[in-house]
Amino acid sequence: MPEDALSTPILRGEGGRVDEQFETVEQQQTTAVTGLWVFLGTEVMFFGGLFLAFLVYRLVYPQAFIEGTEHQNVLIGTINTIVITTSSLAMRLAVRAAQLGQRWRLRGFLVIAINLGVLFLVLKGVEYYQHYEESLIPGHAFKFPEPFAAQAQMYWILYFVATGLHGLHLLVGIGVLSVMFFFAMLDKFGPEYYTPVEVSANYWHFVDIVWTFLFPVLYLLRW
């Protein structure tokens, strides 16, 4: 009897990097990326609901929301936009380095991406502290000039929910990227296998995209 083809790991070369249900590395990677996009589809709906809630309230209380927006620090917001965009660029260059088998560049770009993510959260923390100083945190201590205190509080609730959830996603992303860095130090990735880096990068870009909308919606709609 010939060797059982089904149990033979024919294509499981490269240290078992192609799982048995896949024929090629490409197929495995395409499947992984597709799976990520299905997840990102749920994320689009998730944040989409938040944006929709904001849109409805913005139309119902335009003046209150404009007055709420005027308390935002656009300078920090713009700097943070550049920080997260640069972090996104570094992560994409990390994927490219993995594709080309450049180990040290891969590690370096991962470190840059992670640190810029941390910098973003730090700057966001500075903003939160400013809001705290200005008594803009919804609840008992919330202070806002009449006649729109209640409506403006709705703006600040949506602001904290949206940026808080975005921050949480960023925190998860920093964790994922740190794991990638750990594997990169162990030389797990190379031109023939870099799917985890690609998938993590796409998640990281998505977090960037969410901010691409949060920044104009929360900081720039002033008219």
């Binding site: 656009v74 917001g77 713009t78 550049i82 965009t85 920044f215 900081y219 720039l220 002033r222």
Partner: peptide, 9 residues
């Protein structure tokens, strides 16, 4: 992004 931030004013 910078242009966008400036346009808000």
């Amino acid at each position: 992004s910078v242009v966008n931030a400036a346009l808000a004013f």
